[in-house]
Design a protein around this nucleic acid. Structure first.
Lengths: 211, 211
DNA sequence: CGTTTCCTTGACCCTCTTCAACTTGAGTGG
DNA sequence: CCACTCAAGTTGAAGAGGGTCAAGGAAACG
């Protein structure tokens, strides 16, 4: 898999906020999005899947008063866009400069897609446990470990998203996320190298936190 | 008492678009479980799906210290047991006396099962919004409305599960669930006819609560 | 009927939220 | 290269919602 390389590359681009040229080197089928651009919206016609070529995507939903829940993040190499029925139930937005390859799921082999759909299901269900039953520090530990696993299990991870996205993903506020980062840093669990680069200094302890 | 629900549920399956796929899977005979009986456990070999003939099932997961998150409830007529990979990630237990028809998913047509898997995914994702971003009263309103929809959209719903299961499903404690029921009753939103029978007196208001 | 489980209610406490101010850092233009 | 600006992140103080602990009451079951 070259996807890990992609992830590292895309993560760095995001962190530096460098725009990706959408010109010559890109295969024709890749669509590029700028930071914050909408990929699809609630109510849109569904039916297309996307492969993340570079960058990162957030899937989310809003309540009437503006409260937001980020349902999932999708990093380079991952596929998203599964929806039952004909209309989107969520929003998808590019977090940074992002490239996507659309896949028409119509005509795709369901037997091929099923494992992906089921992995998405498992992810959502495990996230329910985190949000429903774990405290702020445990949630963030789980988040770090998940991000690490998806970035090739290195001890240094890139967070392609701002604190607000992390907060809305974990059912917390941005302040609690920030304070918890600080607490983890001062207790030596992690160290920060820039606001979006985290070194997992004591992985075992992080793991113990969310068992 | 609750086993009488089956006849009522069975007639509505068509309306919910839930049913036994008609293809390669041959239902075996019905297995019955007593209240609290384990259907499968985390770590078990996966691969079998189940149709709930009567009764109700809870899917859950535990943290090391015993905290529990109920991931889903499955009522009569519904299918559960989707898992990626070869081993179970969750526990499934009968809530009451329950009858299940096992379906071997091996050899089943993935195209038939995909919509079911995707509906499960949507359910989990919508549940994330409830748990991540809504307060106790909103969570319980959403729970009532979900149960009502799955029971044929009557104003009177049966809760097949104890308060503790509801609490663990909504990421609350049993005390908060009980207090919130009381608050809803005294504000006329609902009325209770026995501890497990709820009349949704003001559906509109309940709906407004969780938009 | 008595026993156990389930449910309710009260009092207190703690974690996280809210509100606010301040700091840092990336991108822009002089 | 430095100053400016705006977004992003951090930190503090106060408050609220829900958790915890504890006790009492109702309902199911043998």
């Amino acid at each position: 898999m070259h996807t890990a390389d992609y992830a590292a590359f895309a993560g760095r681009l995001g962190g530096l906020g460098i725009g990706v040229p959408s010109g010559a080197m890109r295969p024709a089928s890749v669509r590029t999005y700028t930071s914050g651009a909408e990929i699809y919206a609630e109510g849109d016609r569904a039916g297309e899947l996307y492969v993340v070529e570079f960058g990162a995507v957030r899937i989310h939903r809003l309540l009437a008063d503006g409260r937001r829940q980020v349902i999932a993040f999708h990093l380079a190499g991952e596929i998203f866009g599964f929806e039952p029925g004909a209309t989107r139930s969520f929003f998808a937005e590019a977090i940074n400069a992002t490239g996507l390859k659309p896949l028409s799921s119509i005509g795709a082999d369901a037997a091929e897609l099923m494992p992906l759909a089921l992995r998405g299901l498992l992810r959502a269900q495990e996230h329910l446990l985190v949000i429903g039953r774990q405290c702020a520090m445990e949630r963030i530990a789980a988040f770090f470990l998940d991000m690490a696993e998806r970035q090739g299990d290195e001890d240094i991870i890139e967070l392609p998203m701002p604190r607000l996205d992390i907060a809305d993903y974990l059912g917390l506020t941005i302040e609690t996320v920030s304070r918890t980062f600080a607490k983890m840093r001062s207790s030596g669990l992690i160290s920060l190298q820039g606001t979006r680069t985290v070194r997992l200094a004591k992985r075992e302890l992080l793991q113990d936190l969310c068992r």
